[in-house]
């Protein structure tokens, strides 16, 4: 194939052109992030001056000071962290335990029917159950609590499917039998042997679930009622709706809400990409 040969002149040119094109496209996609970043350091007037300032003049931290002083952003950050971590932990626990059971106990009666049932529920779109889930949460008196944000959606059919597959690929029955002979209890096997082997799959599912939950606006809008419970997306959304929109504060708050995700994505990129691609290529 041509890629194995020493590149000729026109080949070098072709490669150069491809790099230029890719860098240009990458910059185009990054532009809104650049705009977000510099706007957070501009004064409110500078955000809207023409011609636009491509580099803030001067760089100001006042938006951040104001957003800390005048809004509940710190509380919102804490709420979002607790909710996302809680939801992620619960989802990973339920799905890995269930997925392990489906993979490791092939002789349990009804196993295949139950698994087919789980798969069928994957087809149900969330909007169909939006109202009843809200009604259930009202009846349980958990509206406007962390529970209302953490628990719904944690019984994730896709997660079960994924974890079952991960167990089948990474955990050998011999290993489990050896552990049983050594006197390890069934839950101990899951906790001490299976979970560590599932680490890459857990990381992939975890980061996916975490980011979705961190960004969730619709559900927060429905179940959170008081300012002390608001999450970051909800806080920013409501700031945007205020009279005399405080753009400087909004830009600072947006940067604060986005930065952790970007860091998390860059750290876990490999797992994350593997996670979302596995659905298309294998399924």
């Amino acid at each position: 194939m041509d890629t194995f040969e020493h590149p000729a002149h026109w080949d070098l040119l072709k490669r150069g052109a491809l790099y230029v094109l890719l860098v240009a496209l990458a910059l185009l996609f990054m532009f809104p992030f650049y705009w977000l970043f510099i706007s957070a350091f501009k004064s409110k007037e500078a955000i809207f001056t023409l011609p636009p300032q491509f580099i803030p003049d001067p760089w100001r931290l006042s938006n951040f000071l104001e957003v800390f002083r005048e809004t509940t952003i710190v509380r919102a950050f804490a709420n979002t962290t607790v909710i996302a971590a809680g939801h992620c932990t619960l989802t990973l626990f339920l799905c890995s335990l269930g997925g392990y059971a489906f993979a490791a106990y092939p002789h349990a009666p009804g196993r295949d029917k139950l698994f087919a049932f789980v798969l069928a529920t994957m087809m149900i779109p969330g909007v169909v159950t939006l109202i009843p889930v809200f009604v259930v949460l009202c009846k349980l008196h958990v509206v406007n609590t962390y529970t209302a944000m953490i628990v719904p959606g944690a019984a994730n059919a896709f997660g079960i499917f994924w974890m079952r597959q991960a167990v089948q690929q990474n955990v050998y029955h011999d290993l489990l039998d050896a552990a049983r002979i050594d006197g390890c209890g069934e839950f101990g096997i899951y906790w001490r042997i299976v979970l560590p082997l599932l680490r890459p799959a857990l990381a992939a599912l975890g980061i996916l679930v975490l980011i979705n939950n961190w960004n969730n606006l619709m559900w927060a809008f429905i179940v959170l009622r008081t300012e002390d419970m608001y999450t970051l997306p909800l806080t920013i959304y409501l700031l945007q709706g205020e009279l005399r929109t405080p753009y400087g504060q909004i830009m600072a708050a947006s940067l604060i809400a986005t930065a952790p995700l970007i860091v998390a994505f860059l750290v876990f990129q490999r797992h994350f990409i593997a996670g979302i691609s596995s659905g298309a290529v294998k399924g």
Binding site: P32, N215, L217
Partner: peptide, 23 residues
């Protein structure tokens, strides 16, 4: 490059709206 094109997917939609509102 992949990360640059993929980052919009993980960005909170409210933030996207704020930035595109400016643009």
């Amino acid at each position: 490059v992949r990360a640059a094109v993929f980052l919009p997917v993980i960005t909170p939609m409210v933030v996207v709206a704020v930035v595109f509102g400016l643009l």
